[in-house]
Design a protein around this nucleic acid. Sequence first.
RNA 1: AGACCUAUGGUGUAAUUGGCAACACAGCUGGUUUUGGUCCAGUCGUUCUAGGUUCGAGUCCUAGUAGGUCUACCA
Length: 560
Amino acid sequence: MSGSESTASNFIEEIIESDLQRKGTEWKVHTRFPPEPNGYLHIGHAKSICLNFGLAEKYDGITNLRFDDTNPATEDTVYVESIKEDIRWLGFDWEDREYYASDYFDQLYHFALYLIKKGKAYVDDSTVDEIAGMKGTPTRPGQESPFRARSVEENTQLFSEMKEGKYPDGSKVLRAKIDMSSPNMHFRDPVLYRIKRATHHRTGDDWCIYPMYDFAHGQSDSIEEITYSLCTLEFENHRPLYDWFIEQLEIFPSRQIEFARLNVAYMITSKRKLLRLVEEGYVSGWDDPRMPTIAGLRRRGYTPAALRNFADRVGIAKRDNLIEISLLEYFIREDLNKIASRVMVVHDPVKLIIENYEEGKFEDLEADNNPEDPSAGSRMLPFGREIYIDRKDWMEDPPRKYFRLGPDRTVRLKHAYIIHCHNHTKDADGNVTEIRCTYYPNSKSGSDVSGIKAKGTLHWVSVPHAAKGEIREYDILFTDPEPTTHEDRDFIEFLNPSSLQVIEHAAFEPSLLEVTSGRHYQFFRTGYFVTDPDSRPGYPIFNKVVGLRDSWGKKMKNKK
RNA sequence: AGACCUAUGGUGUAAUUGGCAACACAGCUGGUUUUGGUCCAGUCGUUCUAGGUUCGAGUCCUAGUAGGUCUACCA
């Protein structure tokens, strides 16, 4: 950033630029990404990661990775590892700034003691239900706890005994003493600490009391001197409480700014609900290619560039949003169009015989790997008398604008010759079983002197050279754009029964036998695919990332 | 109902901070093309409502309406 002209592209950048101008060169942009290690990261986290790391990149600042691990019951190191892998894969680096809220347990404990000393916190022996019952409602004030008037000495004693393990789980909590009639529910004496005997993934059994998120998050930001603490809208009502803690504890004032969480149509981003999909077996795991998790998107074939461009385009604002999946698809197509090798795969093979092509003869045809990128080179494709073409590329009685094959029609075979269809056979149900054509020897790709204009170009695979493999085609996981918004219905009811289609009889060009994991391809005229880790030697498995745009298919659909 | 927040095309985000409402996606039309892909050109359509301030309001003020969040010893 130089000069005074604004480069801000959202309200957070505006705040930062105005701070930078007013506070001078001492002022640092210091953000953080604060996941709880209790689940896998999803596309909404990707937006937050891009925001936090992106801001630091743009304004010459730094970003911490901090795990908010204050609830040992649900957290685990396997999540820590997956989270780190996902962030790295997206292309961001927190260098040596890997922190944990649990690193601050001791400090947090002393913060609590300090609050007690100031008469701003007390130990409450009430039960969960009693505390809830005295909470009041947004329109009715709550009642003060009978334990609210305990002395500083008694509270100090009780709290340290809580820490020492003198009391059973749930028997006491430490609460802030604020205002039981506040219109902001978070000020009605929020719970600060609870007794919970659980082994923490990092601190083991050192503690039997754990701070609540609200008593840990803001102070953790403060300890790390985070200048911009960015979070989603639902924490708006928590901000006054965090500011109150900062003021009472007289610590570094991090500034929290809230933005709207990402919502993508037909996707869900509730960790609890995603966990349910995994645990109840509706998907194969956290990295099922239908999952909106980063691991799932990666296995589906999404690239970091596509996700980052998407996060960029979606923008940052405070109003609720519902992004169309077509935007996500646009960015993955854009990226893959540049980098994916074109290959020929026949999904639903029908045999085609070129009657005037010599039996037993084969020739190798040169095929460019990517017309968008000459440096991608080329490969050789075996061609012969018998080939497969896709069933949907043939119609017995085609409409006028159909550019593909049918009786007495002429098409080009990609990288090969122009052929003319003059015969076909059908089975009892009327399905075509074999197509018979003749080819024009002087129409060879690259040296075509036939003068024939073929309107359509088909992909094909040589019958004796065809490789076997599997294609997994994915569709939206839910049939409703917002499956979790129906009060009276479980989101599971909206699961798409045909979200996965396995195709086992496709014919692959032989070069695909030597695939490596995670490699992207464009199946010519079909879509983008990526090799799945389930692939076995000699049996490649491909996940469909997204189809090619299909204006013909769309037109046909509209006619129906 | 109380507090806090939000309201701009079908979708998302902008608008030099009070000065001709723009960009992207989606849609539609056409062109190029050995992918009905890519690319190119064109097109459609927008400031929640009612008042007010002003030469001038998406932007400021007032009132309303609609939506979101908050009543866990979860985060």
